[in-house]
Each structure stands twice: as structure tokens, then as C-alpha cells.
Design a protein around this nucleic acid. Structure first.
Lengths: 328, 328
DNA sequence: CTGTTAGCGCCTTCAC
DNA sequence: GTGAAGGCGCTAACAG
């Protein structure tokens, strides 16, 4: 922060008081055309840029939104951020982005940092569901929207995809196409989405009357974890249902290395439909989440909290995307 | 920004002056253990969080770094951001991230927003090389580091990979493995990296004495652009050299759809070595850039400018990664 | 060692 | 319609 022109400077040049400068720059109170013109000219000449820090201090509003996510490198998260950013910009807000890199303490620490920066609102994709972090969040005293989790607390808004219904639909499709044995390679089960997908898988399996076999393994939402889990499988079933696309990529890669034919020998499915899902060979059958819209909706919810103090939770539809990695 | 405890509140509770509170909280001046204890207790009880906005206004330093990138959804960029963020956090800085979504005017506008927020420094991956934006940047009056471009201006630091040498090395390898005809599918040639890669390709082709044939097409650094360019090719050569991995993915997908055998019929190469490059089938031969380190180096350069007013430009090594998409 | 005071740049009553 | 003055929360002199 160097010494740069302030309203004082432009007041001096325009030969008016700083109050007048403030008024024309904010355009809320009437100022004579004559003075207006002089002020605007001086501002232009000085290339004046308002100091939002000072303004924030005075108005108690920084026009800044904190965004705390688990991992910026995950394309799923960054697409959400993009959706939110595009939306928020229209309202003059800027995003203060922090990534916890999957570390819980850092998540907590960054929350304090963001709060310290006096963000007007907070958007967050929690590392895990139901943690002290989530409880802390609602006592923050600023509008919060939680993404990829559904919170019932009345002080925070939330938005997530309908993971349960998406996974159910996928399972029904697999059953309809005559798959009899399954493996479910779950991502982190502490996560809201992890829980929901697993719950759907189990429910479908249990309700199924015919004799189906299945096995469930736990890992993380990563490529390498997919490979690990695959290796631990007791046997290769008709279909390997993966917790997300990243896991599926790992499974696909490893299975091909082992000379299995996909989908002839075994079907593979993912969840998310990230950009790369259609690029694999064969392309991946998966459940699409509209992450960009998720970001937009989250931003909309935040604006609602900010302006009308309205809280809400929305569940987004998912869509089954059938591609070549599952046999018909 | 609600009404939350300030040093005034804790001064009242601890029965001391606000100056004393400030002193113990910042720990720069000696305060008696007795008072210190009372202050700390009061602060703890109130769950006090310093207001960095006010502090920033007073100190002329916000501990905030602006980061302006073309597209947050591009894994290449977000990896760079991650590298920088991890580094900057250790120094107590937070990143204010903005994405121009590839729109030049927005890039300019966001620069103003960031400046208005009184960031202490700026990191940016420019949309294009040599634009008014770049010229504006050096007159900002704050330390700047430009990433993925090399700037010779003495007021800004910069860091980029050695694209020229990386592409040269790749071409030599292709020549050594007996490829005789080539297509170069360039990304945006206004970009520093685009220019350098193209220049390397041309130089190698021109210097080559034996009769080699080649064709050059221009597009953007995207999956779809890869498909488009492929379709415009006059004929399928021995090797298709792509401007980056995303283009290569498009080419790979489309070529396989057309029933070509990779690499038997044609070799394909990329540039960047993003996460997914090893997941395609066959995995992609490419040139690795260490984006995470690029972010770290950029952050380091920024800290140097901030602390010692030292400017520098660094060129990072690349590494040829040979995988299955090119024949031996 | 500790308290009092003066701003950082801006917006906003309150007078004129 | 316009100017003067106070204060947002904090830090950094300056006194004592």
C-alpha cells in the first residue's frame, strides 16, 4: 500500500471539500453539475482508485466473500468456485479463497483468517460432515453457505447434489443391465456425499431380492486410492461402482494394465462427471453433478442471506450419464 | 461485519488501556506478566479476533496478495495457485484470487479491484503476452510477479518454464525415433508459452537437413480445439505434436473414434504433463512442467520484492516424459 | 512499563 | 447544495 491519491487529493485539485468528493463518487446525494464535473476530472487525472480497506472500515462492509475449500487442485471444487465467482462479481463482491489442503486444523485456522479479514459472508466446502468446524461456523455472526453438504441448522444455507438419488439411479441401471455382483469403492465416508452414495448403494443392495453379491471398500477420493482399493478386492465382480470419477480413473488404469477388457470383463462407473470422464478409453459411465451451477446457487443463497436474511437449503438434481465403461 | 469484540472491549474487561492490549497482542513491546495475563484472559473469553481491515488501514499493509489468473478451472493454473498459497501462508499472507475467464477487459477490471483492496503484492498469469495490461502492471506501485511469461522490465519479477528447450528436446526425440512427417497443433500463439513452443518446433524443423514435412495449425489450449484442428489437418502425419495436453486429449479421443491405432498409426505428444496425462489410453508422451514449484518460486520472488526490493526472473527446467502415445 | 492521543482514508451526520 | 467534524478499530508516537 503505497502513497496513492485519496479523496483529499482530488478535493484539493477540484477545489471542493472531501465531503463533496465522496458524494459525487458515490452518487447518493445531489451535487451541482459544475462541481461534479470538476471532481470527476480531478479523479480521472489522478487515476483515483477508492481504498476499499478504508471504506470497509467505515461502512462495516468489505464487499469480500470468504471461500474455504479442501483442495483447489481438485477440478470439482474449482468448478464450483468458478460458478460462485462469476455470480458474485455481478454484485461487486470479490472472493478471498483459501484451501485447507485436506488438513482439518488448517481449515479451522483459515476460518479465523477469513473472519479476521472481515469478509461479509462465507462459502465453504467442508472437509468432513459434522465437525467442530461446522458448529463454529454458525456462530460466526455472518451469513454462511455450506456447499456439498446439507445442514439443517437454521442459521446457515446449504446446497448439495442429490447424491442418494443419483447413486440409486445408477444402481438400478446396473441391475437392469444384468450385473449380478458388485464392488463399491467408497471415498471418504465422513463426507456428506460419501455417506449418501454409500447409503444408496447399500439400500439398493439390501432391497434387492435376487441373489446379488457385493463387497465394500473404503479409501479416499483419489486416483491412487482407486488403485489401492482395486488390489484389495477379493475378486473382480461384474461391476465396480466407484465413489467418484477419480477413483474410477485409477481402477480403469490398473484394470487395463492387468489386461482386463472394459466393459466386457467388468463394468466400471464413477460419480461427478468431471471434464476428463469422457476422455478415457472407454469413456466413463457416471453420474453428473452440475458443479458450476452448484457454485451459482451457493452464491445466490449467500446474496439472499446478505440482503433478506433468508436461509435455505437446496438439493440439486443429478443425471445418469451412460458411456462405454459399462456393458449394456 | 457485525459488532464483534475489539481491543476496546478487552481493555475494559482487563482493566487496562487499549494501548496495552495492542502491545500484548502484538508482542513487540514489554508488558508486565500480570497485565499480560489479564489481557490474554479477556481476549480468550471474548474469542477476540483482530480486525485486519483496521490494522491494514493503520499500517498500510494488508497481508493480502492478489492473484489474477485466466481460468481457475484449468488444473494447470490451479496447481500454480496451490504452490503459491502453501508458500505464502507461512508468511501470514492470504490470497485474493480472481479469474478473468479468458476475457481481457475483465482482466483489466479485476486488476483495479485487487488494487482497490490494497493488496501488498500481485501475482498474475497474463492472458496474453505484451498487452496494455502488462504495461499497466508495472506502474502499479506494488511488487508484481508475472507467471508463465518472462518479463524484462526491471520493476517486475517473473517465472516460467523453459518451453523452448522442452519442446526442442521433445522434437529431437521424435526425430530420433524415426518420425518423418509432423503436424504442430498450436495453442494460442499470443501467449508466451505458445510462442516459445512454436518457435522451438519451427527451429528444429528448419534446421533439419533430411526431408521432413510439416504442417502448423492454430487454435486454443482446449480439448475441443484439439478435435477441430485435427479435422482440418490435410493428412495424418507420423506424429502430431500438440501445444499442450488438453489439445492432445482431444486429438487422442477423436483419432480413436476414427479407428486409428495409437501409436502404431500415429504418435501423439502433449505438453504440461497434467494429472490426467498418465491416465489416458495409451498414456501420453509429454513434457513435464513443475507447476507447483512454479507457484512456489513465484511466491518466493514476491517475498523477495516485498522484503528486499529485489527483482528477478527465473526459468524452470522441463522434463521429457516418454509414455505409450509415441512409438519408439 | 503504561496510558493518552493522533491519525490511516473514507463516509455520514450535522450545521450552514 | 456544500463544508466541517467525528469516528470505524487499530497502531505508533509521545508523555509520564
Amino acid at each position: 500500500m503505497q502513497k496513492h491519491p485519496g479523496i483529499k487529493d482530488i478535493a484539493r485539485i477540484a477545489g471542493v471539500s472531501i465531503a463533496t468528493v465522496s458524494r459525487v463518487l458515490n452518487g447518493n446525494s445531489y451535487v451541482s453539475p459544475e462541481l461534479s464535473k470538476r471532481v470527476l476530472e480531478a479523479a480521472g487525472k489522478l487515476k483515483y482508485q477508492p481504498n476499499r480497506i478504508a471504506r470497509g472500515l467505515r461502512k462495516g462492509k468489505t464487499n469480500t466473500i470468504g471461500f474455504l475449500i479442501p483442495d483447489i487442485e481438485n477440478p470439482f471444487f474449482s468448478a464450483i468456485v468458478k460458478g460462485a465467482e462469476d455470480f458474485l462479481r455481478k454484485f461487486g463482491y470479490t472472493i478471498l479463497l483459501c484451501s485447507s489442503s485436506g488438513i482439518a486444523e488448517r481449515e479451522d485456522e483459515l476460518l479465523n483468517v477469513l473472519f479476521s479479514h472481515k469478509v461479509d459472508g462465507l462459502m465453504t466446502i467442508p472437509l468432513e460432515s459434522q465437525t467442530p468446524y461446522l458448529e463454529k461456523i454458525e456462530r460466526l455472526g455472518i451469513p454462511v453457505v455450506v456447499i456439498d453438504d446439507i445442514i439443517k441448522k437454521k442459521d446457515v444455507s446449504s446446497v448439495a447434489s442429490d447424491n442418494y438419488s443419483g447413486m440409486s439411479q445408477l444402481m438400478r441401471y446396473l441391475l437392469d443391465t444384468n450385473h449380478k455382483s458388485f464392488a463399491f469403492l467408497s471415498g471418504d465416508p465422513h463426507t456428506y456425499s460419501g455417506k449418501e452414495r454409500l447409503r444408496a448403494f447399500r439400500d439398493v443392495m439390501v432391497r434387492q431380492q435376487e441373489n446379488v453379491e457385493y463387497e465394500i471398500l473404503f479409501g479416499t477420493y483419489t486416483f491412487n486410492s482407486g488403485i489401492d482399493m482395486l488390489r484389495k478386492l477379493k475378486r473382480i465382480p461384474d461391476a465396480i461402482v466407484c465413489g467418484n470419477d477419480m477413483i474410477a480413473f485409477g481402477v480403469l488404469t490398473e484394470l487395463q494394465r492387468m489386461r482386463y477388457k472394459i466393459p466386457d470383463d467388468v463394468s466400471i462407473t464413477g460419480f461427478d462427471d468431471v471434464l476428463f470422464s469422457k476422455m478415457t478409453n472407454p469413456p466413463l459411465t457416471t453420474v453428473r453433478q452440475d458443479y458450476y451451477m452448484m457454485g451459482e446457487v451457493a452464491a445466490q443463497l449467500l446474496m439472499d442471506s446478505l440482503n433478506y436474511k433468508k436461509r435455505d437449503s437446496v438439493l440439486l438434481k443429478t443425471e445418469l450419464v451412460i458411456r462405454g465403461s459399462s456393458r449394456e
